[in-house]
Design a protein around this nucleic acid. Sequence first.
DNA 1: TACTTATGATTAGTCGGCTAACTATAAGAG
DNA 2: CTCTTATAGTTAGCCGACTAATCATAAGTA
Lengths: 165, 165
Amino acid sequence: MALRYTIRDLPRREGLRRFAEQIPEVDVSAVELLVQFLQTSSDIQYTIFDILERKYKLSEGKLVVMIILYHEPEGIAPSKLAEKACVTRATISAMLHRMVRDKLAWVVCDSTDGRGKLVALTERGRSLMDEILPGHFLRTAQLMKNLTEEERHTLIGLLKKIDVS
Amino acid sequence: MALRYTIRDLPRREGLRRFAEQIPEVDVSAVELLVQFLQTSSDIQYTIFDILERKYKLSEGKLVVMIILYHEPEGIAPSKLAEKACVTRATISAMLHRMVRDKLAWVVCDSTDGRGKLVALTERGRSLMDEILPGHFLRTAQLMKNLTEEERHTLIGLLKKIDVS
DNA sequence: TACTTATGATTAGTCGGCTAACTATAAGAG
DNA sequence: CTCTTATAGTTAGCCGACTAATCATAAGTA
């Protein structure tokens, strides 16, 4: 099914806002802000990551993992990789399987630790990154092009005020 | 594995930023903005939705579906539900299976259309929503409490300037 | 040294997304 | 009225995330 992505979350989030308005004690502007944030979030998800997904079968998670690997030409332990990518080892384990299958990475046993392994990108993995990243940064710049330097600064400041303690 | 959620994406996104800095043509402030946005995004994901997930086994997607159903006491067709929730019918189909299994919703055949069905919340589903929503809106308000009304307004305006055309 | 504990990786099972292919029924066109 | 096309729902199979359990090896301790 072809979802109409440009308006995709409007009705979805709208429901939440309508709901909030019906309950007197609710902080409506906070809900509206959350709704807008989630909306922007899924829009960015689409313009930045779904493109990579469709064109290169590369999810955000895999991109993150590959960028980490790109910086570790000597290889890195899967557990370290999990930690840096902020996912569980189980997730890395499955992802590595697919990456090895697709010849994007290789894995060897760590000679200094019988339990451990070492992962690194293959030449194919490296060149995929070289192919992908320029467009990725370009799309990022495009996304933000309507914001002045000052506005970007303000926006970062306001985002940091959201209390996620 | 217990991830340290409070700092969970710092290293992850950091890799992207460091990468950007090494390439001269890259619009660094745009990348920084994206990094901060994704960071805030996953923080919100945690404080708002992971809580629901852990306490009530309720994902964001299921919450959205249940809010829609909450507003449709007469029942709604799964295809309409998919459209309003902005997911595919296949996704709804699987989710409804689980919701029926967990006695949160029931499904009957549509008498006016041999192909169709009608879904609605069970009493259990409704009362779960009644139980969950106050806390949910409270956490939303908590999240935004450090922002003045004016700042909220500014933030919404800036988010809308992000170009996702 | 032997036992206990900690760590690295994997596996099984769950969930929520997706696409593609399928079945059944409704609606429209000739 | 029949044939074609569109629509509703399901199923199979993939991906990335998770937890919990398991296995092997390292490291620490009595």
